[in-house]
Amino acid sequence: LEARLEQAGVLKKVVDAIKDLVQDCNFDCNDSGIALQAMDNSHVALVSMLLKSEGFSPYRLDRNVALGVNLTSLTKVLRCAQNEDILTLKAEDAPDTLSLVFENAENDRISEYEIKLMDIDQEHLGIPETEYAAAISMPSAEFQRICRDLNQLSESVAIEASKEGVKFSCSGDIGSGSVTLRQHNNVDRPELSTKIELTEPVALTFSLKYLVNFCKASALSSVVTLSLSNEVPLLVEYAMGSGFVRFYLAPKIGE
């Protein structure tokens, strides 16, 4: 593998977004790019990430390879890169190590690091194609604020999407709270719009602890999309120029 990324910051943000959810995971490298799928220890949340091969220049791969990485180790090495550095990932066919090279734009500094790889036996879940009943896109900063605010009052949030809008509500020991967003279109700054596509009303309850964790991906994209259907996991997606980070969260269900 040899994959060169114009901005090291992209990989730094991706790893920052997922490192608190999963510790060890495989970066699966194939013709479509570098992909990752991993569940948290409790099997409540799952992250699925793709950095498309088009996002790298060049992207050279002789044969598919899985790079078993400890994300804490990778974070330490990525801290040694500036966001604007050019990052090159290199690995052999049956690698023991992953090599990371950081070059500044002026081309007068080259930093070379290696991290040890591990064998990770990871089960990949089959995620069914789902026609979601509701898809809500909103500013990622707004979603982050809502999750943090409501998490002060409660462990859980109810998300209700209807024609009127989307309502996030919670109640806890000290009281209760809710935030309702209505659809609106910001012509000048589309990334600040809230869009609600709905085929039927949805009401689901989720643990805020995980949602707050997902929001660490807000640096990747100014827009987040929530896809919901009754009684199925929530999909939270942050789209990047050439790839995505998706989180799935199992709902809380009444007995």
Binding site: M39, S42, H43, V44, A45, L46, E123, H124, L125, G126, I127, P128, S156, T205, S207, V232, P233, Y248, A250, P251, K252, I253, G254, E255
Partner: peptide
């Protein structure tokens, strides 16, 4: 009272 489900209930292992 609602209880937390896990993803295995919705997604299949290969």
């Amino acid at each position: 009272v609602k209880s937390q489900t896990t993803l295995g209930r919705f997604f299949s292992l290969p």
